[in-house]
Design a protein around this nucleic acid. Sequence first.
DNA 1: CGTGGCCTAAACAAGT
DNA 2: AACTTGTTTAGGCCAC
Length: 684
Amino acid sequence: MMQEAGTAEATSNGTAKQNGVAAEGGLRDIRSKSATPSSDITAATLMTLQQQQALQVARQLLLKQQQQQQQQSGSIKSTKSSEKQPALQVPVSVAMMTPQVITPQQMQQILQQQVLSPQQLQILLQQQQALMLQQQQLQDFYKKQQEQLHLQLLQQHHGSKQQSKEVSTQQLAFQQQLLQVQQLQQQHLLSLQRQGLLSIQANHNLPLHSLTQGVIPAELQQLWKEVTGTHVKEENSGSNNGHRGLDLSSASPVPPKSSLLNQHAPTNGLYGSHTLKRESSALDEHTHHSHSLYAHGVCKWPGCEAVFEDFQSFLKHLNNEHALDDRSTAQCRVQMQVVQQLELQLAKDKERLQAMMTHLHVNPLSLPQTPTTPTTPLTPLSHHPTVITPTSLHSVGPIRRRYSDKYSMPISPDIGQNKEFYMNTDVRPPFTYASLIRQAILESPERQLTLNEIYNWFTRMFAYFRRNAATWKNAVRHNLSLHKCFVRVENVKGAVWTVDELEFQKRRPQKISGSPALVKNIQTNLGYGPVLPATFQASMAENSIPLYTTASIGSPTLNSLANAIREEMNGAMDHGNSNGSDSSPGRSPLSAMHHISVKEEPLDPEEHEGPLSLVTANHSPDFDHHRDYEDDHGNEDMLPDQARNFYLHPVKEPFGTGGLLLHIAWPGGIETRVDTCRESSTLI
DNA sequence: CGTGGCCTAAACAAGT
DNA sequence: AACTTGTTTAGGCCAC
């Protein structure tokens, strides 16, 4: 097994292997065991960490809701057919969802208590993913429904276009009202959830019961009234316009911009007119041959999961079992709530993402090269996975997985889960002690930690390091002492450890560069240069761990910096893609780095409070030279306003570990700030 | 087969 | 004296 890993490493990217994987040493066995789980959870994405986290939160919410939905239908079903065997009656999907019933906290607990084996964990995670898929399907379904509805309404609208403008105005007003109503409803629902009325208890027969199965139209009406208050009336009056409750939803054609609100239209329609739903769903059926409620021979009606041989039987089932009745209505309503919230969350996240993208939509140079950087939503590296995945996936485990996942963002937005994973799973992280220590230090606000703080970081971040303390602590100390890159600095209170990034980068560069094959692989796979120290690359994988910290980015960033610089030097500003250049062995990022003359002014520990004296240096003819610049402390306003400037100056760091802060002013007023000490970059 | 990297283990010293 | 911190050495595994 280990052999395999080694081989794979060699083939896919020996460098990477060396780096993080080298750490494998004693972990191989463990890693191989845990390889699967990690691979399953990790999935690269272009989204930033924050985005991912947000999504994760949303996902949790959604999952809960989904579960709720499922439970509802589950309970319904049980009463319907066999009350004695809820378990049996519970659709497979419900059973599958069981893990989701587990709150994140519970999950953590479980993990910490190691109740679950990595395999079990993996299953859990897989189930979560499956659920997400389901959720997606549900979303799709309702979306389609909405669209159909829209179509219908639009048609109606066109048909009655001759109507007086008065009516149109009325409608407009009504629509606005509707929006309000919808918002109110949403709030109400949220509050209900908060109050536990829409509980997500795993138990079938509780409040939930009454809320779902028990919810009869009358109750729903009541609830609806309660929610919408006077608006209901207005809606109803509005419905007079045309066809029953249809008009309620006729408002929906209005806001194509806000699908969120549209979601409500059907809700209204439900109460106003059952036929509406029926029609739309029927339409849905016919329109899409692949029914949204039918997939893989299974009825996708929430909580159903009935299996069918063919589409026809499914349709039959759909009409029989999920006909318009109280139950279906209730289910639908719940589902709409789910979708609503999903949409809401999605909209928020989209907005956020958009803002981030906009904010970061800078030079395509730096972004592509900072795949693991929270600030890189772009995906040029996404092709890489296709290259590495085959070779690395099966062989090495976490680290490999991580790589592939990380660079194939489209797959999944769960980078953050890596952190979660290691925090909760007793799996040895595939990183060297040195890399981890460095990470710990760089993550700290001051980029310095006491030994004990490093210990704490280890235990905090990795479940694995919550045991065998004597062993790994010894290793930590050993590493601190052994590696030059770790600098001990006497402090008032004692001593702290810092990272000498330059030293860190120096680590065995020659070895890696000496292997063309590896180089090639690395370049192909990761888009990183061959000169990158092994550990450096190892830490890249590692980046997925501390991603939750915006400040802490990883080596890739530095690498990206180098690449950016290189690109810049080559006057390749307009290359959106760095792959090509990356594949040329002779132009490794680091070598590019070396082209930059860094005139470093060592910082006197005593002066670290004062403004930094800037040193900038760049003898590249392509750039503007140096220019003095004082950074008082995150004083971004003072950033150079000229394009194509490089600013290199010592990072404001108490003990002058050699870090450099590099400002790159790109044409167009875009700037990249890279802290070589932290290996982080920020697009300004 | 040698080299180098990483890991664990352990001895030891110095400080708290 | 016990514990923590830091250094150093040694042996083993692995990849190249």
